[in-house]
Amino acid sequence: MTQVAYIDGIGLLGPGLPGWKAARLTLAGREPYVPGATVVPPASLLPPAERRRSGAIVKLALCVGLEAVTAADVRPQELSSVFSSSGGDGDNCHAICEMLAGDDRLISPTRFHNSVHNAASGYWSIATGAMTPSSVLSAYDASFGAGLLESLAQVAMGEAKCLLVAADTAYPEPLHGARPIPDAFGIALVLARDKGPNSIARLSVTLTEDPGDQIPEEGVEALRRSIPAARGLPLLRAIAAGGQHDIVLDYLDSSRLAVTVASC
């Protein structure tokens, strides 16, 4: 079955891609891609106590989420949300495992509550006051596709608008060697059931067995391959280019997502 929705707002942060507005021309192929480490800003949305306690994945998720809802001109309290990530906060996980391997295993309460996979979702609801349903998913390398399908299903079930945040952070060694995600990367989309004044593009999505699209620019393709959330980059490229495009996004080993993107 084909799932249809409109994209009303986009957020983006990743290596050499400092925001959707800033990276748009690069993704449209009109400016060269210049690699650079991801700079994650402080979580300005959070009250001071929570801001101090939040880790990289929370700051990243809040940053892209805020860019998307601002562009869509929607109140976050009115949006259901989907947070999808391969593995949560890498630094925090490493610190906990290192402490638990030592003699003093008394990890801190803040480290523990930041270790839950739904930390970003929890902080987002605290920051925005959104009491709406929030789905929190992982599907390893397929996490972007899983999040997109869940968001589309929410919109199909009657949620007028849904915020999707797909975000991943890097692990330090030794976990980095086992899961070599190179840097922090996040995409946020505000999906809407109906076309509105802020709609950027119309999506229609079906499952397919065709192979996923690769990106011609080597540096951007390297991101797509190495960071699960960056599997959504072909979608952002198609939107940046404008017009209508048929693309295929990587998802599970057994299926991919065929997406028709048309500018509004």
Binding site: S84, V116, H117, N118, S121, P133, S134, S135, V136, L137, S138, A139, A142, A146, L149, E150, A153, L207, L252, S255
Partner: peptide, 18 residues
């Protein structure tokens, strides 16, 4: 389609919604 829902202690109630 497959996914894990990992929202701490509500996880395997929320899978019914997914």
């Amino acid at each position: 389609p497959a996914a894990v829902v990992s929202s701490a202690c509500s996880s395997s109630a929320k899978v019914f919604g997914a």
